[in-house]
Structure formats: C-alpha cells, structure tokens
Amino acid sequence: MLSIKNLHASIEGTPILRGINLEVKAGEVHAIMGPNGSGKSTLASVLAGREEYEVTEGEVLFQGKELLELSPEDRAREGVFLAFQYPIEIPGVSTTNFLRTALNQVREYRGLEPLDAVKFLSLMKEKMALVEIDQKLLSRSLNEGFSGGEKKRNEIFQMAMLEPVLSILDETDSGLDIDALRIVSNGVNKLKSENTATIVVTHYQRLLDYIVPDFVHVLYKGRIVKSGTKELALELEEKGYDWIKEEVDSTATV
C-alpha cells in the first residue's frame, strides 16, 4: 500500500530524514519509535505534505500513486490521515461544521454524492460512540479550550468519520492518562481492517500495549536503524535507546 524509498527531507537546509525505506501492506500496523529528534514526527509530516519540509531525494508510492506530487488535501482525499501531535484550534468553527466540509470534499473527490444533514448526523452519532466523545464537544469551536485528551479523542473521531486507508498517529499517546489512552486505542483498533494500515509514531512503548504492532522500526538520525516485531518495543522500553545509539554511532565511525 505504502512504499517509501530512500526518502530524504530537510527543513531550512538542515537534513532531518536521511534515507528512509519502509514498506507497509494493507492490514498491517507499523510502529515507528526512536529518541527525541530522530525524525519521527518529520516523517509523519512529510507524508502528510507539510510545506516547511523539503524532500530532497527519494520517492513515496501510495496505492501506486506518487504521494509526494499530491497537494496535502489530495493526499487526504486519497486516504492518508494524520492524527496531529498538536491538534490545531480554529476559533468560531465547530468540529461538526469542519468535518462536514471535509467529508463532503473528500466524497466529491471520490465521486460520491455529498451527505445531507440527516445522513451526516447519523454517521456522526455512530462514530461518536467509537471514541466516547460527547456531542456537546463537537458543537464547540474546533479544539478551542479542549483538554489534551479531548483533542486527541477528537483526532480519532475525525479519523473514524473520514475512513482513511492509511492512518498515521503522531505521538497520539503523549499527554494522555491511562483512561484516555485506552479509549483512543480502542477507537483505533475498531477502525482497523484488512484493507487499511496504521503507522503509529511514538516515543513510548506504553501505547503499543493497546495498539499491537506487527512491525516495530527504530528511527535514529533520520534513518531506520533497526526493525523487528513487538518484542523490539519491549526491549527498548527496558533498555532505553542508548544501546541502539551506541551501536549506530560506533558503526558510523568505523
């Protein structure tokens, strides 16, 4: 479904990603882990098309299409969803209103009829249950004055509404207490299917107890330096990242 080949990206001339290779197939869950500053969030942002990052080399194929050539909105319409690490506040625009605009533009792109208010509302009710989100929250201004947990739940709710093919969760667990983490993870798990894939970007193993990955990759200095199964995450939790850093840094100097 997603094929990343030798991806290099930089911001204001500073290289952050230095040759990422990654294959993600339908039905899989991949976890991207790594110490702070390793490029995890950059990878998520580059895939979603954030403009500050300049791709200097490499290619990304998503369902056979050149992802990097699409505008951010077309990537979204093709089915790439990024759950933001820091969801943005938009005063005066309710989540409902926002999502209806988004959903109908996505549907239009896919050649589907726009949903009328009644159908939209019933779809919304169905998805709300998934993430245990209150309707009152959805009629408030988007993310404005939301708690950290509410913002993250809102991200997953939007994911549920937009039904993406590939979901990228960028540090979705940061700042969540255990209850919120459970709710968010449940939502993600229920949305998984054999036709969709998930990339979980996280610093901690904790989230992976709830969203169990098929593969775990360790990112360091802009490269995937180690890949494995969920056991790798446990090992990292236990030993920290230092041993990987040492391993990489020593081979690099040789």
């Binding site: 979204a76 005066g92 926002f98 605009t101 996505v106 792109y109």
Partner: peptide, 26 residues
C-alpha cells in the same frame, strides 16, 4: 498550521480560508 490542518482533512486551501474567516466573523 490552521490551513495545513484543514488541508490534511481534505479541505482545499481556499475553502479552508473561507472556513476560518467565517469562524472568526461568526
């Protein structure tokens, strides 16, 4: 970042601006 957030949900930039401005003027 507001515009990018809208883009990421599939909303085109012009529409994102309209949405944000209408929210501001609500």
């Amino acid at each position: 970042d507001q515009i990018f957030y809208c883009n990421q949900r599939g909303i085109a930039t012009e529409d994102a601006v309209a949405l944000i401005v209408n929210g501001y003027a609500k």
